[in-house]
Each structure stands twice: as C-alpha cells, then as structure tokens.
C-alpha cells in the first residue's frame, strides 16, 4: 500500500518535472515568436514607406532609373522573404533568406540615399526630408527589434540545450531557433548619411 503510494508520488513528481520543462520551452518559444512580430511590424512599415518615397522622387531622378528599379525590386524580394519568415519565425532557412534579402535592401537603400544627397533641390522638397527621417527612424526600430528577437532566441536555445531539457525538446521536436543577422551592420554605422 505504502509502496504504491510512494510509486504514485514519484510518477507525479517526474511528470510534473517534465510538464514544467515543456511549458518553459513553450513560453520561451512564444517569446521569440512575439519578438519576431515586433520586427515584422517595423519591416512592414518600411515596405510601406518605400513606394511613397519612390513616387515622390521619381520626377527628379529621371536619370537614376536603375537606382529606383533596384530599390523596388529589392523591396519586393524582401517582402516575400518576410512573409515566409513570419509564418515560421526561428526557422533557419527562412531567417537566412530574410537576412540576405534585408541586407540587400539596406545596401540598395544606402545607395539610394547617397543619390538623393546629390540633388539639393530634391532634398528641399517638402515631403522628402520627413520621409527620409521616417525611414531612418524605422531602420533604428528594426535594429532594436532584431536585438530583442535575438536575445529571446538565445534564451530559448540555451534553455533547450541544457540537460535534461534537451530530452523533452527532442521528444516534442522543438528545434533550435535561428538568429536574424543583417550582416552589413558595421558598414551601416560607418556610412551614416546625415541630412542637416
């Protein structure tokens, strides 16, 4: 009788342990998914700003058609990458594709910004400056949100790799989550164009 109770108690303890580990993994996974949605929100903002900006400067930049085209194309590629990633945040492949697309877009935008710099009467246009500032602010927010996402991913991965959590994770097929790196970050900081 006593033996049975002790056994029962032991089973309960082990079950509880497993359940709480599982819940922890679920919580941490939800956190990085939520963190991704913060990035998503800002990326979408940026995607919305770009056509507006392109429309505004089109008239002035008649000879810069290639630059504008490059921007538009990079944007649509990034948008596709993002919608795929949003469905499955943390998935290694989706994150890599997004990272590449976003890096490309950032590079192109930098080129675009440099071009606009070369047209003083364009800068004087009343909508251009606010739009460019908005763009810059959104870039900052993307960067900040990305940092938060990566923090949460690290937190999840570290917990997942510990023993015995890794057993539970394996059983329920909780895979490692991927960070989101935008590789040309250092370059970005160096080539900061100011609009003063």
């Amino acid at each position: 009788m006593i033996a049975m109770l002790v056994l029962l108690g032991l089973i309960v303890v082990v079950a509880w342990f497993c359940v709480s580990i599982y819940n922890k993994l679920v919580t941490l996974r939800n956190r990085y998914k939520n963190a991704y949605s913060q990035i998503d929100v800002q990326l979408k903002r940026r995607y919305d700003l770009i056509p507006n900006l392109v429309e505004t400067v089109k008239g002035y930049l008649k000879f810069e058609r290639e630059t504008l085209e490059a921007v538009v194309q990079a944007r649509s590629r990034a948008m596709q990458a993002n919608s795929r990633a949003a469905v499955n945040p943390g998935n290694a492949e989706a994150m890599r594709t997004l990272s590449e697309a976003e890096t490309a877009l950032s590079d192109v935008l930098r080129g675009f910004t440099a071009v606009v710099e070369g047209y003083p009467d364009l800068k004087a246009h009343k909508s251009v400056l606010p739009l460019m500032e908005e763009l810059s602010s959104t870039e900052n927010k993307i960067s900040f949100a990305r940092q938060a996402y990566n923090d949460e991913v690290m937190s999840y991965n570290i917990t997942r790799e510990k023993f015995p959590n890794t057993l539970i994770a394996g059983f329920f097929n909780y895979q490692e989550a991927a960070l989101l790196e935008i590789t040309s970050d250092e370059e970005r900081k160096a080539v900061k164009v100011s609009f003063s």
Binding site: N34, A35, Q38, F144, Q147, A148, Y149, D151, E152, S155
Partner: peptide
C-alpha cells in the same frame, strides 16, 4: 507606453 516597454527583451 506600458505595453511597448513590456516588449523589451530582458537584456534590453
């Protein structure tokens, strides 16, 4: 600002 502040990561 409360909901947005809650969305910071712990390190942030």
């Amino acid at each position: 600002s409360w909901p947005a502040l809650k969305a910071l990561s712990k390190a942030q």
